[in-house]
Simulated assay, not measured.
Amino acid sequence: MSPPPTRDDVAKAAARITDHVRRTPVIESGAGSFGLDASICLKLEQLQHSGSFKARGAFNTLLSGGVPTAGVAAASGGNHGAAVAYAARALGIPADIFVPETSSPAKIARIRSYGATLHIGGARYADAAEACARHRAETGAMDIHAYDAPGTIAGQGTVALEWLEQTPDLDTVLIAVGGGGLISGCALWLSGKVKVVAVEPEGSCALHAALEAGTPVDVPVESLAADSLGARRCGDLVHTICSTHVAESLLVADAAIAEAQTRLWRELQQAVEPGAATALAALTSGVYRPAPGERVGVLVCGGNVALDTIAA
């Protein structure tokens, strides 16, 4: 296992990718929004290139050097693949993206729009990962892991660096977790400054299970948010970082996720995928109850969703 990245790696990643990613906005919900007494700060990372925060990790990895002539290959539930495809196109690098059959049509269409070679097969992310590994062994293509790699984690951590510059008075941030690359990078940067709370669907909770077991373990995956938060097992680096730097790990029901997704559209006109509504669901369902005066931030992490899905 590679050594975990550090706060210094996050700072270097921010400098490396600054010309290639958007500085995404933060907004205040306003008191009373989402049925909450106090206003919360939302970081709108679904407005990032490729529709999610994952462009940060993809650019950081590709710009760190050592890309072979065979290009890059990535397995993904959808968002990571779109990010790698986008970054590869921007840098003139060939990319092969492997996704399971459960990936949403919106995410598949986005990957195709960036010109990557798309491979669809298997019922789960793990199936796509196995196909991707075979491709890399045959071609020598470079791997960009979706969450458990130092370059990915450091790149995702730039979200927190940027957020804290924009909103320096945060007490607590709620972050949705799939494989854990995003929360790991953010927790590295925020450690000792801001409390970091992990939020996962009840039916897809790889990090929560790992923290309880003291080591990464396989979990069943069955959730509305599985196409973005559907990792069967969190990574070793993720577990090492989160076991030290994440304060709480919470679970929310799919019904709460769907309600939060709908409320983001109705109250803020933000179209997001279920995974991106998962952190907010911890607040709207009462799973997380802020203390009086606690300044809470919610990371909205992905917007690759078809509008007819939200309407339904």
Rank of each mutant, 00 (worst) to 15 (best):
D96L: 01
Y288T: 02
D37Q: 14
W265C: 09
V296E: 04
E294N: 11
R110D: 04
V219I: 15
V296Q: 08
G235K: 00
G302F: 02
K54L: 07
Q269N: 15
P216D: 14
V272S: 01
A137G: 08
K107W: 08
G192C: 10
L188T: 06
A210N: 04
A73G: 07
L283N: 06
L190T: 05
D254G: 14
T262Y: 12
A282P: 07
E162Y: 09
Q48Y: 04
R110Y: 10
D148F: 10
V72M: 09
L63K: 01
I153R: 00
L118R: 05
L207S: 09
E259R: 14
A83F: 05
A281Q: 00
G65F: 08
T158Q: 09
E202P: 03
I175K: 11
W265Q: 13
S2K: 14
L237H: 11
V159K: 05
A149W: 03
P201V: 14
A90D: 13
S204M: 09
T172K: 12
R112M: 14
A55G: 15
P68N: 04
V197S: 04
A15C: 02
I310W: 11
L91M: 12
A206P: 10
G155S: 01
D8Q: 13
G35S: 04
G81H: 08
N79H: 14
G66R: 10
M1W: 12
E202F: 06
P68Y: 07
L299Y: 05
D218R: 05
V10A: 08
G181W: 08
A133S: 13
A209Y: 02
G30H: 04
G65N: 07
A213W: 03
